[in-house]
Amino acid sequence: MFIKATLTQTNFMLKQKETLVVFYVLLIQVLGNFISNVLTFQGIDIIQMYQPMKLLLLSYNRVNYNADATLLFIQLYPILVVLPAGFALCKEQQSGQEVLMIARLGQLTYNFSKLIAAFCATMIVFTMPFMIELLLNCIAFPLTATGDMTNMDIYEPNYIQAVHRYLMSGLYIQSVYIYTIIGTLFMGIVSGILASFTVAFSSIVRVKYRIILFLPVFVLLYATIYLQNILPSWIPTIKWYDYLLLFNDEPKSYLFLLTGLLALVFFSFITILLSSRKEQLR
């Protein structure tokens, strides 16, 4: 029952117009970045060519060359991540469909299936376009190119030090392609967790206007940037995009990342559990 409800709701969320808008916005950004890369790097000698994965929209390495597309993505992300599924519960609360669904599925199954469906739908939307770009880059650019956009030699000690600061640097050293795929999936998973967090928030705080549901994720993500400015410079980065973007060489804290993600997951589950105990069929 639970699996069937989750699958149905994921399928339903993926067909919503907000989901399609977010998917196309990301796809347009990705294709724009790909076309710009093709126009810039066509005909360049393989020795001078940058590693194709470092040209991706999600690549932080681009800040050394031209990161306009990445900048747009970073700015839009806190809002886009809520759109595909964040309003799922709120919409049904407002339209009254919630009562029908609860009568059919039961409160706990309904709420949990909504949470998991929000996670799955958002993860798919935030993974697919970047996987398409990865594939396109593999087809269009030479896979043996090794250049880094910092223009450092790959055997330089500074470059090796920077690589060791990447998130999952072990994977990068094994294979840059596996690192990119896992990194993209990780970004999708974090996006799913943020969407589920919004759903959980809407289960406990009943809002009249959906616009208010942008606030939790928006405040959370920008708080990391504000706090970074306040904290002493020797503390590892806590900015959200330093963890989500690929090839980021800022010093990071795995403890912070894991604690943050676990706190979000824990909050979402506890909140959904608590809201499920309240009787909605009054």
């Binding site: 900048l71 009249k208 206007y209 616009i211 208010i212 942008f214 928006f218």
Partner: peptide, 27 residues
Amino acid sequence: MFELISLITRMIPIYLFEIYFGTALYR
């Protein structure tokens, strides 16, 4: 990119105001 991100961060109070008072008339 870094300087423009810092500009956006400076504008966060404005965005939060827009979110909260974006329903002042609409409600």
